[in-house]
């Protein structure tokens, strides 16, 4: 497929239209939703940029934690397996590497979802 304009370029163009042209003409509830829409498109742009690398890193980390081969299971299967091991207390807060895996994964997610969130600053500040 052609990628000129790329998906990112198209989203950037729509974002600019909403923020610079449409939003200033709106009032009340519609203006609020326009601001939310701009934030959503910023999430989309960050997600497009980060998802592949984040998923690869998270899969490797999950496989190490679960002591399995990352090629043998899908991403969602591994997340499900981790959840089951947490639910039956096979893994706990004191399991080496567990909280580090969850923290690294959550930081990567927040950097896409809400990079200005105060809890993210706190998490980064405590190595």
């Amino acid at each position: 497929m052609h990628d000129q304009p790329s998906v990112s370029e198209l989203v950037t163009a729509v974002r600019g239209f909403i923020s610079d042209t449409a939003a200033p003409q709106l009032t009340g509830h519609a203006a609020f939703h326009a601001r939310v829409a701009v934030n959503v498109l910023d999430i989309v742009l960050r997600d497009l940029e980060a998802r592949d690398a984040n998923d690869l890193r998270e899969a490797a980390s999950l496989a190490a934690l679960l002591n399995i081969s990352p090629e043998a299971h899908s991403h969602s299967e591994m997340v499900q397996m981790l959840c089951e091991k947490l639910r039956n207390s096979e893994l706990t807060l004191s399991t080496p590497g567990l909280l580090e895996h969850l923290k690294t994964t959550a930081i990567a997610q927040l950097e896409v979802d809400q990079p200005k969130y105060s809890g993210l600053r706190e998490a980064r500040g405590r190595p």
């Binding site: 959503v40 999430i43 909280l99 969850l102 923290k103 959550a106 930081i107 997610q109 927040l110 896409v112 979802d113 809400q114 969130y117 809890g119 993210l120 706190e122 998490a123 405590r126």
Partner: peptide
């Protein structure tokens, strides 16, 4: 996409 805010709070 704000559920992850509570995840980082829980981790902290």
């Amino acid at each position: 996409r704000r559920v992850s805010e509570t995840e980082i709070d829980l981790i902290n």
